[in-house]
């Protein structure tokens, strides 16, 4: 049995760890709120663009932008959004699992997969698996800006325009609520423009300046960028929520551990006193 002093040191060190985890929990909770606000703030932009694109696609059936054309899939581009830091439970692992499953499916279907990673965890994971990573951004911080993701997205968009990839997917975590985050694999390109809208009933069209093609080019590029940006922001909210939950569990576990150690310490102390007493008593009776 460990001596009293050893147990005391151990209790102290667990207490210190507990302090850190509970501080991290509180930080994550406040950051999560801000991340959720940011998530809500970036939504109207994507919604507006989606509405305009849906209208454009219906009003101009004669012009089909390459981003809207389905073609046989030989190569797939995947943008994987992960966190920069760990200590957030199984968040990244679950998402990588979803990503790897999707990759496997495409490989079996005979398609190559190229990756672009956002966040350093994704980079280190997929580098280890040996998958080709064509572009990478990381260390975006808690308040990423759109311009941070433009580079990564552009690499993929160019690859799509040049026919190097035939489909673009994004893998990220969807924020369901604080307790649950769901890995998502979403198709970005080609954009399926089905959603029949009521606007079609009374037919009207925009005036385009300078022309429909240029307007559509700009819109589609911004649409993809904003979708990726939204994925990044959502992933941050997920990261904070997952970290909060993980740190809460860690704090609780540390508490249990301290209780157990305290009990062991008390027992050891009690045993030492009893032993000492019996030694004194037996010593006295011997005299």
């Amino acid at each position: 049995m460990a001596s009293g002093k050893e147990i005391r040191t151990q209790i102290k060190s667990v207490k210190n760890t507990q302090k850190i985890t509970s501080a991290m929990e509180m930080v994550a909770a406040s950051k999560m709120r801000r991340a959720q606000e940011r998530m809500a703030a970036s939504r109207p932009y994507a919604e507006n663009i989606r509405r305009v694109i849906a209208h454009l696609a219906q009003a101009n059936p004669e012009y089909r932008h390459p981003f809207m054309l389905e073609r046989p899939v030989k190569r797939v581009g995947m943008i994987v959004i992960s966190t920069d830091r760990g200590l957030c439970g199984g968040l990244n692992t679950n998402m990588f699992k979803a990503g790897v499953m999707a990759m496997k499916e495409w490989r079996e279907a005979g398609a190559e997969v190229r990756l672009s990673t956002i966040g350093s965890k994704g980079l280190s994971f997929f580098r280890r698996t040996g998958a080709p990573v064509v572009s990478e951004v990381s260390h975006l911080g808690d308040a990423p800006r759109l311009e941070d993701v433009i580079g990564s997205v552009k690499v993929m968009l160019d690859a799509y325009s040049n026919g190097e990839i035939d489909q673009l997917l994004v893998v990220y975590n969807e924020f369901v609520n604080t307790m649950s985050q769901k890995p998502q694999v979403m198709q970005l390109l080609p954009i399926s423009a089905q959603s029949p809208e009521r606007e079609l009933e009374h037919h009207w069209d925009y005036i385009y300046e300078p022309d429909a093609r240029e307007v559509l080019d700009g819109l589609l590029m911004r649409y993809v960028e904003s979708m990726v940006y939204q994925g990044v922001v959502e992933n941050i909210a997920c990261e904070m929520a997952a970290r909060m939950v993980a740190m809460k569990a860690a704090t609780d576990n540390a508490g249990d551990m301290i209780d157990g150690l305290q009990l062991a310490y008390n027992k050891a102390r009690q045993a030492a006193i009893t032993q000492e007493l019996s030694e004194i008593v037996s010593g006295a009776s011997a005299v």
């Binding site: 970036s42 109207p44 932009y45 507006n48 759109l146 300046e209 300078p210 940006y229």
Partner: peptide, 24 residues
């Protein structure tokens, strides 16, 4: 009028006129 960027909503409200720097 709604003025939105990918990062946040900037302005939303009722106005009489909007003047914007269009490309042309």
């Amino acid at each position: 009028v709604n003025i939105v960027s990918a990062e946040q909503e900037i302005f939303s409200g009722t106005v009489e006129q909007v003047i914007a720097p269009a490309k042309m």
